[in-house]
């Protein structure tokens, strides 16, 4: 046990830095994935049929192929036209990947808003945009939040695949520590704990937000 603890302490600087990179990968994935997902969701609900086709095709394509394949296509596959650093190949692939799931989550959030509320807002003279901003958007977001939080957690864990395109994130550091120390159990457990900590913090943040946004459901 004390061996394990000293391994934790000794590896701390390396893992800490790597955790920062894991967070950066996830952040880029979400900061790009959210607006992209929102656009795809908008396309999927559009009155313009080709836009809906595009959304369906996009979601089908992205969800139908493994993330590691998408990362490799961006990193190794595009070298003739574009040399992407591992970090960007991985985070952009993650963004695309998550945007498809986020699009579906947002779409079902919007579909859960009763039509009557839209009509009530419009009948007060609110424009389509005002109604989106004040009524449909906030309500859709409240419904979508638990699933979005879940997707964020998946994104953090999926970012470990960036290890395979040379990014020094958590899992990569664990791989290296294992290779040099021949103690796979120790370092895989340590890295698992780091992921767990990040996920727990994220869960807490999402729960807080959910709580704050569901005041209307409590007395």
């Amino acid at each position: 046990m004390s061996d394990f603890l000293s391994a934790v302490v000794e590896s701390w600087p390396l893992f800490f830095e790597a955790a920062g990179r894991t967070l950066a990968l996830s952040a880029v994935a979400l900061l790009l994935g959210l607006p992209l997902g929102a656009l795809v969701a908008a396309a999927s609900m559009s009155r313009v049929r080709p836009l809906r086709w595009f959304a369906t095709a996009y979601i089908g394509l992205v969800r139908g192929t493994p993330l590691i394949t998408q990362i490799f296509i961006l990193y190794f596959g595009l070298t003739i036209v574009l040399l992407l650093p591992g970090f960007w190949a991985a985070s952009i692939a993650l963004a695309f990947h998550n945007s498809a799931y986020i699009a579906e989550i947002l779409r079902s959030g919007f579909q859960s808003v009763p039509v009557g509320l839209d009509e009530a807002s419009r009948s007060l003279g609110m424009s389509w945009w005002q109604t989106l901003r004040r009524v449909r958007g906030p309500l859709a977001f409240r419904t979508a939040l638990p699933s979005l939080g879940n997707q964020f957690i998946i994104a953090v864990k999926d970012s470990s695949l960036a290890a395979f395109v040379t990014v020094d994130e958590l899992f990569q550091v664990a791989l290296r520590a294992t290779a040099s120390s021949y103690e796979p159990l120790t370092y895989y457990i340590i890295v698992a704990l780091y992921y767990l900590a990040i996920v727990l913090i994220l869960t807490l943040v999402v729960n807080r937000l959910e709580h704050a946004l569901s005041k209307h459901r409590r007395s």
């Binding site: 009557g116 509320l117 009509e119 009948s123 009524v135 309500l139 409240r142 946004l213 209307h216």
Partner: peptide, 15 residues
């Protein structure tokens, strides 16, 4: 905005 509408289901904004 000059026509008020009242619905069977009230349709108040729940949030």
């Amino acid at each position: 905005r000059r026509i008020g509408m009242v619905f069977q289901q009230f349709n108040l904004f729940p949030h």
